[in-house]
Nucleic acid binder design. Structure first.
Lengths: 205, 205
DNA sequence: CCGATAGATGACCGCGAAGTCATTTTTTTG
DNA sequence: CAAAAAAATGACTTCGCGGTCATCTATCGG
């Protein structure tokens, strides 16, 4: 078998290949049922090689979730902090962000993994909560607060429950994994309709 | 060990005990990681006994999900069909139904099981879709259509996407399983706030 | 060009769990 | 009450997978 040069880039590429193959398998059959042999084969390495980079199957799962750094979320945070646009526009941007997430199979798969296995692996639940959920919630609260300060919004439910804003994105992630063969779902249209209702509800008397 | 009399009731009680223990384990550690020995012990039977009632671990999962007949949903269907109350009142009833579901650990656990394992076990995804999701969706569509016919509601997003109504209930089920140790969630308050927003959004100009 | 070192490999080991079945216990029946 | 039938048991078998490590290969320093 042809071997790679041992540059740092090759090392990184190998780690990425392993994590990509692992996400594939974990997502397809679940963490427990996934076999390291299959992951190794899909990544184009021997099983032993995985253990040069990850000390156990569980750490592979954790590393995989932790490597999903939410660059798009960070971009949105900066955009919102810098923007002078009305809050309703910022909320639409947030909707677009969620719609993009719903279209991205890898992001959906990581979300679904966290929801499926998070109770058993506190490390991934905590990481996801800290890096994704709490940041998303803070962003939502900031947008709603801004809209209320400017008089654009007259209600505040999502400030108390930011989950009300992201709920349809979670539904989309679950639905596309579990029920899509039975009934298709147009996730961006779902999220768009949700944002429309949200804006009316926040403005409405 | 004391043995049970072999009446039909005892047989049924035994099946129920097995399924209850199985739900407990499946929900706690996941289907793959759950051990039949533990389920048997928790149910107070020997492992072999499980195979007198279920032909495999997988069939036990399927039987368990299928046995969760949604009596409350049926009651709500009848209530809505018979009621002359305004649509907004029916939607509040639907919210109360979801809040009850969110408070019931067994219903939450079955939902979470379906969302976690449904992709791997089409039988449970199909059953849940047919018996719970499609019926819930039909109910939502009927309520919205009634409200629009009477002029109470002037918007129709949930008729196209009934998921917009149930999304927070799904969020609550997932949250209570995965993130509750990290951040508590008052599920009934979440759902109540959601229904408030929903009604404003449906009525609002 | 040749050790030496770090990286990669995959055959192998041990364990643990799904599923089986000979045996034991309980119930039924004549 | 005895014998036959049915139900329940749990020790045992089988097998698949996580994890290990002796061996092999590629790179590099001198």
């Amino acid at each position: 078998m042809a071997r790679q040069a041992r540059t740092p880039e090759a090392r990184e590429a190998r780690v990425k290949a392993i994590m990509a193959a692992a996400l594939d398998q974990f997502s397809k059959v679940g963490f427990e049922a996934a076999r390291l042999d299959d992951i190794a084969q899909a990544a184009g390495v021997a099983k032993g090689t995985i253990y040069l980079y990850f000390e156990s199957k569980e750490r592979l799962l954790e590393g995989l979730v932790a490597s999903t750094i939410s660059a798009p979320l960070e971009a949105l945070e900066h955009s919102v902090a810098a923007s002078t646009a009305p809050a309703s526009e910022l909320l639409r941007q947030y909707g677009a962000f969620m719609a993009q997430g719903a279209q991205n199979a890898d992001r959906r798969r990581v979300m679904h993994l966290v929801f499926s296995e998070g109770a058993r692996f506190p490390a991934i639940a905590q990481f996801h909560h800290r890096e994704v959920i709490s940041r998303g919630a803070a962003l939502i609260r900031a947008i709603i607060a801004k809209g209320r300060a400017s008089g654009e919004f007259v209600h505040d439910e999502p400030e108390r429950f930011p989950q009300l804003v992201i709920a349809p994105a979670l539904v989309a992630a679950v639905w596309l994994h579990v029920f899509d063969p039975i009934e298709k779902l147009d996730a961006p249209a779902l999220i768009s309709a949700h944002i429309d209702m949200l804006l009316r509800a926040l403005k409405g008397g």
